[in-house]
Structure formats: structure tokens, C-alpha cells
Simulated scan of single mutants.
Amino acid sequence: MRILLIEDEPEMASVLKTALERQDFIVDRTATLADAEIMAKVGTHDAIVLDRRLPDGEGLDLIPRLRAMNVDTPVIALAGINDRVVGLNAGADDYMVKPFATEELVARLRALHRRQFTLRADRIEVGRLIYDFRDREALVDDKALDLPRRERLVLETLIRRPGRAVMRRTLEEAVYSLDDEIGSNALDAHISRLRRKLEEAAAGIEIRAIRNIGYLLRTLP
């Protein structure tokens, strides 16, 4: 899940970004409305976490501007207790009062994501592999595979589209934030390790490279 975090206070931004990344979120962070509008338009974010008090204006003013551009990414607004009604009336999908527990923010983001994809299965089976999206776990014969964060994010993205090519850019956006320095073969290295683990577990699937496009996950013939 990719998050756009709009928070100008460096300490708060650092705490939130670290907490979200520990829960496997990909976080792009900015501190101004101007940059946030550009990033929200060109990005592929699943949710926006928006502080109200920003150096170049009222954070809530961003919401109608995004909706006018057909950007319908759900927004969680952050501010004081007396601002809750104002925030919701301005179009925020949810509202959190500072100070708050980062665990609650994580739970609310996951709830927003579930609402967006209620028709998607919680578990997908391809070959002998079952991926459980609720528990974030890959299983072969009920045995969990040991997958580091980025390998798991690659698998989540590919298994959503079994038998279909997934563009390299789509995979990179699922795995890396804008702040990450991505080596030319970093994604390929993650996929190589993931391939090896799937083969060792006899998962009955393969990840194929599609030249000049990306990768494809399919059942072995």
C-alpha cells in the first residue's frame, strides 16, 4: 500500500514515516501543499495522510482541488479535536486527532484499503502457492515462506494479476518510495531471490521476464 504523507513538522513526519514503513507501507513524504498536489496527480497512492497546518496554507484546501482533477484517493486528515467536523465536511474520508497512536493510523489506513477492494479475495491461490493478504503470508502446503519485505511486496503485486504481465514501473512503485535510491538491477535482484525461494518450495509457479515490459507470474505447465 502506497501512502502520500503530507506533514511539515520534521519530527512528526519522521515518526510516522518510520512507523508506516515498518508495517510494509511505501511512503512518499512532502511538507507543502504545492508539492503535494503535484505528487497526488502523478502518483499512484492508495491513501493520503494530510496535516492541516502547512506552511503554504490550509491542508484541507487540497481535497476539493484533487477531486476537481478526478483524483479520488481517500484522505485521512490530521489536526486538533475541535477541527474534526470541519475536516469531515471538507471531504476527508477519515479524521484523526493529534496526538494519536501510530497503530491506530495503520489500522485506519488498512480499513480504507479494504473498503476500496472489498471485491478482492483475501487469499489467492496460484499453483501450490496460497497468498493470504490479511496475514501477509505466502504458504506452500501450509508452510510459510520466509520473505523479506520487498520480496513480499513484489509477490503481492504479481499474484494480483496471475498470467498477466506487470510493468516494471508498477512493480517499482509497489516496492520503493520516492526517497529510495534504486539501483539499476535492484528490482531484478529481489525477483531473483523470490524465484529461488518459490522453486525451492516447489510452489508450482514461475516468474518470467517479459522483455521491455516487466514480469509475469504464472502456473508451471
Rank of each mutant, 00 (worst) to 15 (best):
Val27Asp: 12
Glu206Gly: 08
Glu200Ala: 10
Arg152Asn: 06
Glu151Pro: 02
Leu78Ala: 08
Leu88Gly: 05
Val97Gly: 03
Asp35Trp: 04
Thr32Pro: 02
Pro162Asp: 06
Pro74Asn: 09
Ala202Trp: 10
Phe117Trp: 12
Glu104Ile: 10
Ala68Asp: 05
Arg115Pro: 06
Tyr215Asn: 02
Tyr215Ala: 01
Tyr215Thr: 00
Asp28Thr: 01
Leu112Ser: 08
Asp35Ala: 03
Asp132Cys: 01
Leu119Ile: 12
Ile210Trp: 01
Glu104Pro: 04
Arg196Cys: 09
Leu171Asn: 04
Ala19Arg: 14
Leu4Ile: 05
Met1Leu: 08
His45Glu: 10
Ala111Arg: 13
Pro162Tyr: 04
Ala165Ile: 07
His190Glu: 09
Glu11Gln: 14
Arg195Gly: 09
Ala19Glu: 14
Lys197Val: 09
Val15Ile: 15
Leu5Ile: 05
Met69Thr: 01
Leu78Ile: 13
Ala40His: 10
Gly59Tyr: 04
Ala138Arg: 10
Arg149Ile: 03
Gly59Lys: 06
Tyr95Val: 00
Asp180Phe: 02
Ala77Met: 12
Arg84Ala: 14
Leu171Met: 04
Leu217Glu: 00
Leu54His: 02
Ala174Met: 04
Lys98Thr: 15
Leu105Lys: 00
Ile207Ser: 04
Ala19Ile: 11
Asp93Val: 00
Arg110Glu: 09
Val71Cys: 06
Leu16Asp: 12
Glu103Gln: 11
Asp122His: 04
Ala36Glu: 07
Leu178Glu: 11
Phe25Val: 09
Arg114Met: 09
Asp35Asn: 10
Glu21Thr: 06
Val75Ala: 05
Thr102Tyr: 05
Ile159Asp: 03
Ala47His: 00
Arg2Gly: 00
Leu194Asn: 00
Val75Asp: 07
Thr18Ile: 08
Pro148His: 07
Asn185Trp: 15
Arg114Asn: 10
Leu198Trp: 04
Ala36His: 05
Leu158Thr: 10
Pro74Val: 06
Ser184Thr: 15
Asp61Asn: 09
Asp188Trp: 12
Ala202Gln: 09
Phe133Met: 05
Ala90Ile: 12
Ala13Asn: 10
Asp132His: 00
Pro221Asn: 09
Asn89Arg: 11
Arg218Asp: 14
Ala36Cys: 04
Met167Cys: 14
Ile191Tyr: 05
Asn212Lys: 13
Ile124Leu: 06
Ile130Met: 11
Ala144Asp: 07
Arg115Leu: 12
Arg160Trp: 10
Met167Thr: 15
Asp135Lys: 15
Gly57Phe: 09
Asp51Trp: 08
Asp135Asn: 14
Val75Leu: 08
Glu200Asp: 13
Leu5Trp: 10
Arg53Phe: 13
Ala90Arg: 13
Leu220Ala: 08
Asp122Thr: 03
Ala121Ile: 08
Val86Trp: 13
Met69Arg: 13
Lys143Met: 14
Leu220Tyr: 09
Ile38Lys: 13
Thr73Asn: 01
Asp146Ala: 15
Pro74Met: 07
Ala144Thr: 12
Asp83Gln: 11
Glu151Trp: 03
Thr157Trp: 09
Thr18Asp: 12
Leu66Asp: 06
Val85Lys: 15
Asp94Val: 01
Ile159Gln: 03
Asp51Cys: 00
Phe25Gly: 07
Thr30Phe: 03
Ile38Glu: 14
Phe133Trp: 02
Lys17Asn: 14
Ala138Ile: 06
Arg136Met: 06
Arg164Tyr: 12
Asn89Gly: 11
Ala189Asn: 14
Leu187Ser: 02
Arg123Glu: 15
Lys98Ala: 07
Leu178Asn: 06
Arg134Trp: 05
Ala36Ile: 06
Arg120Asn: 11
Ala90Gly: 14
Thr44Ser: 15
Pro10Arg: 02
